[in-house]
Simulated scan of single mutants.
Amino acid sequence: MREPAADRSVRNLGVLQRTASTSRVLNLVEIGGAKKGDPEYHSQPFFTTPYLNQSLVVKHIVRSDERYVLDDQRQTATKVILPFERSDLRMGGRSFLVGQRGWRNIVREAGGGAEGSNIDRDIRLLTALDEIPSLDPFLLREHLSRRGFTIAGCYFAISDADLARMHDFVASEIDDLIRLTFADASDSSSYADKLVRVLLSPEITEQLEPFRIALRLEGEDYKEGLFSWKGFLYYKWLFSELRPKLVDVLREIPLLRVTGHKDPDLMVHIERTRRRLVEALEAKRREIADVLDVYDRAFADLTKNGKPLAFQSFLLRASDMFLMLGERIGVISHITTAWRYRFPDARSPAASVEEVFDILKDFDHLVSSLEK
């Protein structure tokens, strides 16, 4: 079997595992270790190829020394990392980019050279992963479901890294509901501290029964409603973290200085793209804020206005909003991350005319893709 090229950038996958954010990394190694006793994990795997189903999938900013394997000039690619030793990720791994020349052959060889529906299905799944800007669990589940993939729910849990960072934010968000649901609670903060992890975990336990009663949901509607609620809490938190970074990028884009020879035609295009990009990012920021405001008003109907059916109805029709929020937040996350990676010194961002043209064109394409 021809191996994918060794990737020096992922020599210490243990570090990647400890710092993984679900919006950037899908850690199938960790999921496999935690869920190996779950029947659904085996009956509805993410990848049907065992080797792939013990990989890490990463939304990766393409480095200059990687561009030769790609036919386009994309700034971000979907990277699949195949660990040398799954029990010790510090040993590193080999990787490939979805879309690099010959990547389908690499997938087939990772499966032992097998042909057939399982390999074809995994190739289609990788193509679907490459279509979205983020690997956050809510966008991922909705996108893959609409592409016809049936995958166990354990693959769409919020990571421990994100849970730790979300904890205080979610606790403050649900404080009113805790006061309403646990009327005998003299200290709602102690309830919040215990319930946040339970609420955001993939399992539905008896500790959440008061919430089920408050939401007036049963069976599958309860599972879907709870998933939707987690999703909006997740996106509110994620947007609260992204917003100041976006403000910085919006301020810096007009300040980006072009160095070296300035081709007049390229400069005209750069200035037009620069203005269009700033306006489009502002518009996407407002769209995200508007949808989250719809959630806030629905939640207020439950906690302040005593209208649980209004919030229930909102949750059960929320899947379209997941796609909208996930796609927009994913694009903004990519742009803010890629921008700071390329321009760490916010005081004097500068690049050649060709590089400025490529960066702005890529960002503009990403934002424009949200309208399709």
Rank of each mutant, 00 (worst) to 15 (best):
D290Y: 02
I359G: 12
S190T: 13
D187A: 07
V247T: 09
L82E: 06
H42W: 13
E271F: 06
L28C: 09
D71N: 15
F363G: 11
W237M: 09
A128Q: 07
V29E: 02
R272L: 13
A34D: 04
D7E: 15
R147Y: 02
K245P: 02
K35P: 00
A110K: 05
Y68K: 14
L177E: 06
R74S: 15
E142M: 10
I329E: 06
I119C: 05
V331W: 03
R340A: 06
D168K: 12
L316A: 08
D136C: 10
D122R: 06
W103Y: 11
N27T: 09
L97C: 02
L238N: 03
L52W: 02
I270Q: 10
S23E: 12
S333T: 12
S145R: 13
V291E: 14
E85T: 07
P133D: 07
L315F: 04
A114K: 14
G148L: 10
R274Y: 08
I61W: 06
G153L: 04
V10K: 01
T48Q: 14
L163F: 02
D65Q: 09
L309W: 05
L302F: 06
A157Q: 14
A164L: 10
Q207Y: 06
H261R: 11
K304H: 02
D301E: 09
K59M: 13
L89Q: 03
I132T: 01
G330P: 07
G92I: 00
E85H: 11
F314D: 04
F149K: 07
R275L: 11
E371Q: 12
T19H: 06
R90I: 00
L316H: 04
R317S: 14
V258S: 14
R276N: 14
G326I: 04
R141S: 10
L323Y: 03
D38M: 07
R251F: 01
E279F: 00
L52K: 08
P4V: 09
A164M: 08
R257P: 01
Q100M: 08
G148F: 08
V367D: 03
I359F: 14
L13Q: 06
F311V: 00
Q207H: 05
D175L: 04
L242K: 01
D301Y: 03
P210F: 08
R179Y: 02
D290I: 01
M267T: 12
I61P: 05
F211L: 15
N27Y: 07
A298T: 12
R8F: 06
R121Q: 10
R274A: 01
